[in-house]
Every structure is written in structure tokens, then in C-alpha cells.
Design a protein around this nucleic acid. Sequence first.
DNA 1: GCAACTTTGTGCCTGCGTTCACAAGCGGCT
DNA 2: AGCCGCTTGTGAACGCAGGCACAAAGTTGC
Lengths: 275, 275
Amino acid sequence: MAAQRDEGDEVVTGTPTAPGADRADGAPGADTAEHVEEPTALTRERARAIPEAAVARLAVYLRVLSGLAEQGVNTISSEELANAAGVNSAKLRKDLSYIGSYGTRGVGYEVEVLVGQIERILGLTRKHSVCVVGIGNLGHALANYGGFPGRGFPVTALFDVDPDLIGVPVGGIPVDHIDDISRVVAEREVSIGVIATPPKAAQEVCDRLVAAGVQCILNFAPVVLQVPDYVEVRKVDLAVEMQILSFHVARRADEATESGGGPDLSDVDGVVIRR
Amino acid sequence: MAAQRDEGDEVVTGTPTAPGADRADGAPGADTAEHVEEPTALTRERARAIPEAAVARLAVYLRVLSGLAEQGVNTISSEELANAAGVNSAKLRKDLSYIGSYGTRGVGYEVEVLVGQIERILGLTRKHSVCVVGIGNLGHALANYGGFPGRGFPVTALFDVDPDLIGVPVGGIPVDHIDDISRVVAEREVSIGVIATPPKAAQEVCDRLVAAGVQCILNFAPVVLQVPDYVEVRKVDLAVEMQILSFHVARRADEATESGGGPDLSDVDGVVIRR
DNA sequence: GCAACTTTGTGCCTGCGTTCACAAGCGGCT
DNA sequence: AGCCGCTTGTGAACGCAGGCACAAAGTTGC
């Protein structure tokens, strides 16, 4: 049982596996020992070495780069690209260095090359079949996206329990009953499952997905899913997002009343948090 | 111009959230300084001191606690709560310590008290009016959520540019034209704006929201929004989430072929370095 | 009232990710 | 051909967040 990541950030980093759970190798005292690896010989793309936060950013760079490519831009410097992606250029260069050295000093990066390399690292050279479970409001919206945002993620199966929905095509795909999940997932080689069910059903749906062989799950239900170690879960939690924003609204209100300022904070800037 | 966090993931996603990204306050070393303070007299919450990642987790704890409260649970230990929330208990206690000392040693936490305190910190004691811009598939789904996930976030305004939509009620609220955004936002005291438009329109919509006085934005459009420093942006980027999962799928495939093993990792030779 | 047990709150350490800053490398210009 | 300026790639420093482990504090039982 590993909990999934949470971060917040959005749905971001951190990888809280079960506390000491992994390290199945035994050797109780061994953990202090080796851990060093061989950083020099990072031959094959040691995907493992890329921090998850960097992966998320790579996806953003990719989108920006794709846009640039369409506009006919051939070359871009780290500074420009960093700007467009909203990060600092050092970070961008480090992120790109994780996937290899594809820049030309004194010039910048070739857009096409970068797009290709990032796609390769993110595994986008291959299509990943997606299924959506729970065809309510959100499920509908997701299904209708068709080839999911950014294409390369064809939705090939939809599931629900509602008898009225079974067989009805949504976004061109007929809804299957969730009891058939195992068969359908196998037939259509689904590699990513999206959970858009009510919270109560989420864990069971998750278990069924896992049992059907799905190892990557995107969870929209506001629950903490329990999954085996080898399953990758990412969650998108609207309630949490809203509450984080609420926190900031509150913070702002506090600061405003505290400093006597109006809603216009533009001039505050210099350390409001006395204490 | 401040870029928003990412994360991813924080997206958290994640955010992650990008750890140090915000921190508009400057005063780099300031936070390390006093931090000890008189825990007794931490009267008003100096919200700033709470790491964003912790805020995100507090929202999760809150949901778990609410569930427990409904089930009639009165008291819970950090260990149990941590389990339910999928984090480690030390982290949970540290997170809770950010908001004060509301536990009883030897006993645990009183569920009601914790719920109240977290709600206070997250600013949930007050309702935050939300508007949704872009009534397409996703916008529809969001509008239909009604009082947004977790209640306390009433959707009070919807905007679009499509003349066919204007005036049509969605989820009980008639759609306004985006040109009226400034007036409507002011009238209904919208404090949070949700962008669910196509990417091309997102930046302009964002600018209009900001101009209308909205300082917190939840962005579903796959673009990096440029906003003034004082505006808080969180993004939910489905494409990025999918691509992160894709990355993991690819990683998995690599490992499998590399070690010659099938999807079952349990039997491989010594070093699979899973995770 | 005291002792034993339980659980919180937190100081400290560790590790990761971000940032800085600079040497290395490449193209253009003379 | 050689020099100059620009941009990459990365070693090293820094800062923050996570995890451990323990003292403090409260409860229960005798």
C-alpha cells in the first residue's frame, strides 16, 4: 500500500511511499550503506533520475515548443523559452540537461529537436489508450475532449454503473458496464484509467482498474486512494484547489485589514507580516 | 509579472506546486529568523508561515475529518488520521502544528476542533463566490457541480462569448457575456475566477478577470498565464497530468524490457530498483 | 498520589530541488 | 585563422521540506 503523491501543489511532487515500506531487499541496517548508484554511468536514459517536478515542467516546455514550431520558429534560447514557460532559465537548462545535451552553445536549442526528445522521454511516441470511469458531468466532459488534451491519449473506453447509460455513445464511444472493465481494458489495451466517479465509488473502481491491469490512474474523486506500490496515481482535486485559493483570499484579507490598506496591494510589497 | 506555480506538481497539480515560486514578500532570510515565537500567543494567524504544500494537505485532512465527524468519531490520533490521509504521522503533526496546538497528549485530536481550526485557517468560514468563464464541456461540468466540491464555493456567475449561450441558464445560473465581466464580478462579489476557455482566449480572459478585481484564479486552460504579482494562479493541466502518467508508463516499459521481466516485478533478479 | 503508558509537539538531521555562477564550447566577424 | 561574444551545461551552495526520534505532557490504573 502506498499513498499517492499529493503535493500540492497541485498535484505535484513528493513521493510518499509507505514509510519504510520499500527496500524489500531486507538487510535492515543496509539502508545507510549503498545508495550511491553510479551517477557517472547514466547511460540509457535513466528515467528514474529525472525528478517528477522536472517531468511536469518538461510537459509544459513541450507545449510551448509545439506552439513555437507551428509558428515556424526554428531556434530558441533557454532564456526565451524559460520566459514563455514561466520558469527561470537556469532551471530550464537543468531540466533539459536531464534528458541530454541537445543545445548549441552560443545559439540555443533547435525547436524540432527538443520537441522530439521531450516526446521521447515522456513516452509520447506511443499512444496511450485511456478509459474514463464514471460518466457524470465531469466524465462527460472528459469523454468529449476526444483525443484528450494534447492528443496522443485516445479515450477508448467508458464505464459506468447506471443502466440507462450503458450502450449510449458519449463522445463517439459507447459506455460499458463497469463489470466488464477487466475484459474491455484488456481488449483495448488501456494503460491509463481516469476516475471521475463520486467519492464513495472511487476506491472500488480503483481496485477494479488495478485488478484489470491498469498501472496508471488519474483520480478526480476527492478521496485518498489506496493502491499497491507499483501503481502510479495522480490526483486532481478541485476542492483542494479551491481551498488553497480560499486560503490565499483569506490571507489577503487579513493583510489588508491588518495594515489598514485597501484592496489594492500593489504598494504594500515590503514585508507585511510583522511579527 | 509572476509566473504561477506548477507543480505540479502541484499541480499540485502539483505542484507541484512549485515550492519557492510565490513568496512575493521578499525578505529572503526573514522566515528563518523568528519562528519560535510564543506559541501561546499566536493570536491572529500569520498565514504566510504555512508552506503551500502543507496547506494542500490541510485541505485533505479537513475532508477526512469531515467524514469522520459525520460518522460520529470524536477523537483521533495523528497516526490514524495520517493513515487515512495517506501521509506519515510526523508530517501530519507538523502540518497541524502550523495552525496551533489543538491536540491532547496521550489522547489525540478532537475531530470537531480540528475541523473548525482548519476551516478557519483555510478561510472557509466565509463563502467565496466563484465565476466560471468558458461554458464549453468543462465549463458546463463545473457549473453543474453547483456549490463546487466541498461546498462553501457557490458559483454565482458564468461567462462566455457565444451569443447562443448568453442568457441560457446552466446549473441554474444564466450565462453572461464576457464583456459584462467587470460589472457582474463587482455586483456578485466574485473572489475566485475559473478559466475553462480554449487556450487562445485564456490570457485575455485572465487579464479581464484581473482588471475586474479578481485576485485568485483557477486555470484549466493549457497555457502559462502572465499575471501581476498580487494575483494567485493555480492551474489544473490535464495534458500535463496525462503526460506525467505517460512518462511513468514508458519508464515501466523500459524497466520491463531492460530486465526481461514481464509486468510482474516481484520475481526479477536482484536489482530492479523499483522506485 | 504515583507510576506506567500513550501521544503530541518539535529540534535536528538528511536529502532534494532550486539557484548561482562560471568554464566550456560554438558561431560570427574581421 | 584567430578573436570575441553569446549561450549552454553543470559543479557547488543554499534553502526548504520531510522524517526521525525524543522530551514534554496528559491519562489511566492502581
